[in-house]
Computed example of a mutant assay.
Amino acid sequence: MDRSGSTADRPEFFVLTGPLGTGKTTLLSEYLSFADTSDTGVLVNDAGEVNIDGAVIGSDHRNLALATLDGGCVCCSLGNDLQEGIDALLQARAERRLGPPRRIILETSGLAEPAPIIRYLRAIRQVEFDVRIVATFDASGPTVGESFLPHYASQLAAAQTIVLTKLDKISERQWARSAAEAQRFNPLAGQVVTDRAWERALAAFSRHGDRPFARAPQFSASAASPSRITVVFAQWHATASWEAISEWIENLAGFFGSRLLRLKGLVRPDGYLDPVLINGVGDAFSPPRRIRVLDDIRLGVMLIMRDVARDELFQPFGVENPPTVRIR
């Protein structure tokens, strides 16, 4: 999702997503209450005809630069709604003689899938954003089952950060079980696991790499994925060319379509001094970019997929030098 070039000076665009009833509005309200939001703008989307969440937040934070997207679920009816919402935020801040926001938070409806939103953000005319996806996960809910798919799985798989909510409703001994359950959907995401509202809110919306209360992802070979979710690791031989790697990824994405929820990793094609970052949410891929990393970093890409048969994953997808594929 990051575009090529430095992201240090870009404004942040947080996409706050998560299943219905998992505490997105509560998390956002906590952040607006505890953080310095003088440089923050908020967009609120609700799938219904009345944007209740937007009304609640607007009532509680009257000095906030706020715009509501009332055209239905933002991923299904984007049109010009997102552009117009950003225009409204910029105009509101200009009227108050404030500079452009350094941070915009979009609270999506519980039905929204992140990929169309990420794809549309690239067309925003004013500015390029450092995009982050934050997903809420109800730790007090029942064990994740068939009802979580497909869009709930897409939300969790797309996230860089998963925030466990409603931890106050369960014992601390159950926290680890809930965290492991969320990790099964997305082993790439960091997690925020605390029942202190201010800690949770600040960690959820802090700048990348500066989340003092967030946990790094903990990979566990014993944590089996939900029955319809498959986590795969693909690794290329050192002689693989960029053409072979990119063609395999493109063909795989075309074959699996919406069943590919997330793809992220580093590859070092033959002849390249630095590895290349590949990052995709659904069918929305960022431009590949070279980055400097430590020599001992593990190369390869991790894929989070749903409803795939085992034999589908081991196809060469039209290339002569396919990667070695392992199911986690």
Results as ranks from 00 to 15, higher is better:
residue 256 F to Q: 00
residue 213 F to R: 14
residue 179 A to N: 02
residue 188 L to K: 11
residue 202 L to S: 15
residue 278 I to T: 08
residue 231 V to I: 09
residue 221 A to T: 12
residue 197 A to P: 06
residue 177 R to P: 01
residue 219 F to N: 04
residue 252 L to N: 00
residue 192 V to W: 05
residue 269 P to T: 05
residue 188 L to G: 05
residue 245 I to F: 00
residue 248 W to Y: 02
residue 277 L to S: 15
residue 264 K to L: 06
residue 278 I to L: 15
residue 226 P to M: 06
residue 177 R to V: 07
residue 187 P to Y: 12
residue 216 A to T: 09
residue 244 A to M: 02
residue 225 S to A: 09
residue 185 F to N: 08
residue 204 A to S: 14
residue 274 D to T: 11
residue 190 G to L: 10
residue 205 F to D: 00
residue 265 G to R: 09
residue 178 S to Q: 15
residue 215 R to D: 15
residue 184 R to K: 03
residue 228 R to Q: 03
residue 180 A to I: 09
residue 207 R to W: 05
residue 204 A to I: 12
residue 282 G to Q: 01
residue 238 A to E: 14
residue 240 A to R: 01
residue 262 R to N: 05
residue 171 S to G: 12
residue 234 A to R: 09
residue 204 A to C: 13
residue 248 W to I: 00
residue 267 V to A: 13
residue 217 P to G: 06
residue 178 S to R: 13
residue 189 A to Y: 07
residue 186 N to H: 10
residue 218 Q to T: 04
residue 211 R to M: 08
residue 242 W to Q: 14
residue 239 T to E: 10
residue 206 S to M: 08
residue 167 L to W: 07
residue 227 S to A: 09
residue 167 L to H: 08
residue 171 S to W: 07
residue 258 S to V: 06
residue 223 A to K: 02
residue 185 F to K: 03
residue 232 V to E: 02
residue 216 A to M: 14
residue 232 V to L: 11
